[in-house]
Structures are given as structure tokens and as C-alpha cells.
Design a protein around this nucleic acid. Sequence first.
DNA 1: CTTGCCTCTGACGCTGGCGTCAGGTTTTAG
DNA 2: CTAAAACCTGACGCCAGCGTCAGAGGCAAG
Lengths: 125, 125
Amino acid sequence: MTVTVSAPERLIRIGEVARGAGVSVRAVRYYEQQGLLIAERSPSGQRLYRQDAIPLVRFFQEMFAAGLTSRRITELLPCWDSGHTDAEQRAMLRAERERIQAKIDDLQATLDHLDEVIAITDTHP
Amino acid sequence: MTVTVSAPERLIRIGEVARGAGVSVRAVRYYEQQGLLIAERSPSGQRLYRQDAIPLVRFFQEMFAAGLTSRRITELLPCWDSGHTDAEQRAMLRAERERIQAKIDDLQATLDHLDEVIAITDTHP
DNA sequence: CTTGCCTCTGACGCTGGCGTCAGGTTTTAG
DNA sequence: CTAAAACCTGACGCCAGCGTCAGAGGCAAG
């Protein structure tokens, strides 16, 4: 039988999270307000995060860039960080996947359109 | 020598433009306010458009979906509807093309990311 | 003529992801 | 010990692309 002595994980403060993830401190506080990121508090009230908060914030940025709202992300978080998801959550996950795929297809079509215009304007000054 | 008698093109009103392009009447007025779409006026003050306003509005929607602002679109309009563009405009056009391509690449990476999560949540209920 | 739909001009509201300022406490470096 | 840097809680501001409401005029049909 093995006993896992939880390694005294070094907790970091909000500034380090922000710099590590390339966002502003304000943004990290906002994520907490939206329920995306829960922080412990030091006795004096400062937010304390585990290191994996940094990749998590990067993940949020990725989802924002893909057009998801913070509410939607909170609904999908169980799929991400826990090993237990229900059918509804997996369905939402696939639905978002489809939305993103559709967006990619739209952008690709737009790109092709633009390329035509570029070709015309280049050959026909 | 040929004389081009301009065909008495049927002008349409704002509602027909909106329905044709799948946007709201309010949106079409907004485009005019932003300088995207200039309309003639009937004696009573109603906006009158040529039929090609409909594909033009569709084009605006495509650009909005690709992340361009209305200001940016006005700057690019000469590339689109006239046969005369300068070097600066063609450069902007290519720059936007690159932006969209980068966006597509980002979204594709996000999609791959999501597919991994989906695979995990599906095999590991 | 009137009914009903379309159009007009303001002008305020909304959404989301923050920026930014104010005014105060805490931690850290020297 | 002290000054700078980092952190805290509100709370207002911003932008862009419209939605929406108010109040008034235009236009074809019966």
C-alpha cells in the first residue's frame, strides 16, 4: 500500500499566473468572477493558485478565440479537468467542435474569395 | 462606335435588400451610417438600392465573420468594386489574408485539442 | 378613405471581455 | 525601517454591431 504524501506544491500569486499565461491581472480576476478559476486565499486575502492555473488560463484564451463564452466554458470544464463526464456534457463538447469546424470552413471559403480578389487586383492594376 | 443605353435597372427598397441578404433592416441602415453602402433616395426620402447591394451586404457579413471592422472594410472596398487599386490597398488586402490564415490555423489547433479531449471523455466515461 | 405594411429619423440598450482609475493593504528588496 | 512593487475591492468605461422602442410619414389595395 502506497501513501501519497502530497508534495508541498508551491502556490503562486496572481501576477505570476498572468505573466505566465500572457494575460492581464485584471483578466485573471475576471475569470474568477465568472466562475472559471477558483483560487485559495492567503490569510491576508491574496489569491493563491497552483501552477496548473497557467495552462488553464491559456486554455481559456484558446476557447475565447474559438468563440466560446465564459459561461459555456464553465459548463465544459468537467470534461476537461475531471475524469467523470455525463452524456450531456459530451454532447455539448461535440456540438462546440462542430461549431468550430463550421467556422473554419467559413473562413476558408472567405480566404478563397479573398485570394481571387487578390489575383485580380494584382494582374489588373 | 457603340452607345450603351443604361438599362432601366429596377431599384429596390431596404426591406428587399435585408431579406435578400439575410440581415435586418437595421443592419443595412447601420452599414450606410458606417459608409459601407451608399443609397439613392426617393423624393420622399426612402433609400433605393441596386440589386447588387444584396451580394455586397453578403460580402460585408463574410468580412465581419472574418473579424474585420467596418472601417477596415471601407478601406478595402476599392479593391473589390473598382478596377483601380494602389499598392497600399493591395498590401492591406494581403495583410488581412494573412490574419485570416493565422486565425484558421489557430482554430485548427484548437479543434485538434478538443478532439483529444473528446477521445478521452469518450473512452474514459 | 382607410387599413395595413413599409419606411424614416433619432436615441437609448445590450453583450462580453476586459481597461482603467481610486483608494487602501501587503509583501518584498535594500 | 522604508520605499517600491504587488495585491485587494469596487465601480465606471469602452467598443462594435446591431436590437428595440417612439413617433411620424409613405404607399398600394379594397
